[in-house]
Amino acid sequence: MPQRPGGELATRPLHFIWLTDCSGSMSIEGKIQALNTAIHEAIPHMKNIADENPNADILVRAVKFSSGAQWHISQATPVDDFTWTDLEADGLTDMGKALTMVAEQLKIPPMTDRALPPVLVLISDGQPTDNFGEGLSALMDLPWGKKAVRVAIAIGEDADHEVLQKFIGHSELKPLQANNAEQLVNHIRWVSTAVLKSASSPASQADDGNSPGLNVPIPSLPDDDSISSGDVW
């Protein structure tokens, strides 16, 4: 009996990339420890989302930036195999370089045009010290850069919201403000669950050229009252 027609079947890859600020200021008041804890805590939730949707092949990576930028986890790792190695903080905030490195990975190839929209999560507590605009242009010049789900988390009062908003690129979605460790955990969990779930099964959207809205619907963030006067960054 003939086999079914066609070549190899495969689920659709969904690339999830953390872009994490490891500048010296992240070492103040336990921010980098809080970030490490939050990502550790998020991993089981990401695995649950992956289990719920076996048609999406969720692959996780991380790039860190301080004085320069480098891949912290360079291989696109299936979420079931993903583990987090703690980051350390030191140096400047070369965010532009991190965006350029991510852009290199969103080209086709190595990306495929049958992928699900990638999710990029930018986390920072400060202002870029390199050419942010150049990195953002490199990203947004790519089809997958434009269509990626871009979420930003601002840590503490000194984070540059204007820059993070430019990264997001949609006025209807604002940077998430984390003023303490608990808020950071909540935001990272939300990105790792609600946003990831939405990106893993996006319905088709009509493109009429007149509505440059989000191509993946972003669920609303749950109310957050986890702030107290004693633990503000």
Binding site: D113, L116, P117, P143, W144, K147, P202, A203, S204, Q205, A206, D207, D208, G209, N210, N215, V216
Partner: peptide
């Protein structure tokens, strides 16, 4: 080339 990611042309557009 406009048919990329989950965006598509459609009967519902102007």
């Amino acid at each position: 080339d406009r048919l990329f990611a989950n965006e598509t042309t459609s009967l519902c557009t102007k």
